[in-house]
Design a protein around this nucleic acid. Structure first.
Length: 206
DNA sequence: AGAACGATCGACT
DNA sequence: GTCGATCGTTCTA
């Protein structure tokens, strides 16, 4: 199965965050493949970014994963009840990662819906807000701290250019999309870094 | 040992 | 738009 390589993740974090738009995230769960198309990311860079957990190379039990090789999954608990999934970037030793903020569902929607809503009916509101947030994605893909440190070049959780690379049916690439950049969400405390335009979104032209 | 805080979400006005 | 839930991580002492 073709998937994004260690070299891809080793690039600079802003480039990775932008180039990850339109890629496909695959999660193998109990023999089933869950998949989504990446439509929103954010970059976090320990070297120079006060919003990054590993700012100024701060090394703690939690940030240890950010010092792992590029292509490692960094998953942490936030607000006591949600998880966020990141992809470790840059050469090993530079603590940095891309936060996954939104996906478009591609495969395994039934399982993801059950993981997220249980047996509650899938209303239009729920459909529209299915995977448009980091906590929602981890819930729908059954990702918790137990999966922190997973190797993204392995078989459990990985990225590819096309769903066909994972043996899934092709996904029609939406036409007329463009990349929007802007400040990141939820980092108002981060002084000058709060205004860094390090959020990337793939949106339809109006 | 204790306290403050958070890369969020969903319910509600 | 506002607000509370909820608890691990981090820092202070």
């Amino acid at each position: 199965m073709a998937r994004l390589s260690r070299e891809f993740y080793a690039q600079d974090t802003l480039g990775a965050a932008r180039r990850l738009l339109g890629k496909y995230l695959i999660r193998r769960l109990d023999g089933e493949l869950l998949a989504g198309r990446i439509v929103e990311t954010e970059a976090y860079v320990g070297r120079c970014d006060k919003a990054c957990h590993a700012y100024h190379y701060r090394r703690t039990a939690r940030t240890e994963t950010l010092f792992a090789p590029p292509g490692t999954a960094y998953i942490y608990l936030i607000y006591g009840m949600y998880h966020c999934l990141n992809f470790v970037t840059e050469p090993e030793g530079e603590p940095a990662a891309v936060l996954l903020r939104a996906l478009e569902p591609v495969a395994g929607a039934e399982t993801m819906s059950r993981l997220r809503y249980g047996d509650k009916p899938l209303t239009n509101y729920r459909k529209k807000n299915f995977l448009n947030g980091p906590g929602k994605i981890c819930r729908a893909l059954a990702l918790t701290r137990a999966e922190n440190g997973l190797d993204l070049t392995g078989d459990t959780l990985f990225l590819c250019d096309s769903p066909e690379d994972a043996g899934l049916p092709p996904f029609p690439a939406p036409a007329g999309e463009r990349v929007l950049t802007g400040p990141r969400i939820g980092v108002d405390y981060a002084e000058e870094a709060r205004d860094f335009p390090w959020r990337f979104r793939l949106v339809k032209e109006e």
